[in-house]
Design a protein around this nucleic acid. Structure first.
Length: 280
DNA sequence: ACTCAGGGTCGAC
DNA sequence: GTCGACCCTGAG
């Protein structure tokens, strides 16, 4: 189990990034988290002023180091982003307060399942649902409580709506089955990079249980898009209370307007508003 | 024991 | 565009 250095400690805040509501399978606290990326278990931790990673399944070579960095979104230049919003008092304050908060690049399928699950739920319940789903699927890859591979579309169909309801997915259970069927039928492109936003939006909102908000989350965290602006109740509050948006507007309309204003910074601006409003 | 709300969406009007 | 229904769970 070799340690590899990911970056300097001030480049990424592990707590807000790994356990702040964009991913639901990282367990730990403050400076050390354990979780699964694809089919391997990693521990990502701070030591002195460096962020390190180790893998319990195999040695981390240079290709795998790149994979981890890509997952953690280390390539995004937070300094430039911060400078750009120096004149926006509210956004600048949030960026300073939450230095090192990054957007992860997760697996599209896992994001689809996770954010369908997130509807009218809360982070602790989403984590509970998602982890029980992985445990039920049973592909264990380590000695830890949560060391399981995420179920694919076929496996979710095999588990079935009844079992999903039994482990607490509630009305979201049939939505997950619908998503799995569409994935299996190749109705969802898992590799799309340069799709037009509106095309990707309609592809995703075709899935039952996926409206604009959930689709925006999937595009942000699963497809690595930066032009999507998910608006939930927290982001709504931030936009209205602090950026002067009209409280009469729907979340969908707010998302559309914010996206127009922030363009390719949309995802990051949203992330800082979400985290800031939720933790204040 | 009872109410309330949590990273919304669906279907019917 | 508006409105009730939808499952479950932890907090107060």
């Amino acid at each position: 189990m070799n340690n590899v250095v990911i970056c300097e400690a001030n480049e990424i805040n592990l707590k807000s990034t790994l356990d702040g509501g964009q991913a639901f399978r990282w367990h730990g606290k403050e400076d050390s988290y354990r979780g699964v990326i694809e089919d391997k278990v990693y521990i990502i931790f701070r030591e002195e002023n460096l962020i390190n990673a180790k893998c319990i399944n195999s040695k981390i070579d240079s290709a795998e180091l790149l994979k981890i960095k890509r997952y953690l979104g280390i390539d995004f230049n937070l300094d430039n982003f911060k400078k750009k919003y120096k004149k926006n008092e509210y956004i600048y304050k949030l960026i300073k307060q939450n230095q090192g908060l990054r957007i992860l690049k997760q697996d599209p399928w896992e994001s689809i399942v996770s954010f369908i699950t997130s509807s009218v739920s809360n982070i602790s319940k989403i984590k509970k649902n998602i982890n029980e789903l992985c445990i039920l699927n049973g592909k264990k890859i380590g000695d830890g409580e949560y060391d399981y591979i995420f179920p694919n579309d076929v496996e979710i169909i095999q588990i079935g709506e009844i079992e999903l309801r039994k482990i607490g997915f509630g009305f979201r259970a049939p939505y997950l089955i619908d998503a799995a069927m569409k994935s299996l039928d190749n109705k969802i492109n898992m590799n799309s990079k340069n799709d037009k936003y509106d095309d990707k939006l309609s592809e995703l909102t075709n899935i039952k249980g996926v409206g604009r908000k959930v689709a925006d989350c999937i595009m942000t965290y699963g497809y690595g898009r930066r032009d999507s602006f998910p608006v939930d109740r927290w982001v709504r509050k931030g936009l209205i209370d602090n950026l002067g948006y009209n409280p009469a507007l729907s979340n969908d309309k707010l998302s559309e307007l914010a996206q127009k204003k922030f363009k390719n910074d949309s995802a990051y601006v949203q992330q800082y508003i979400f985290y800031g409003e939720k933790t204040s």
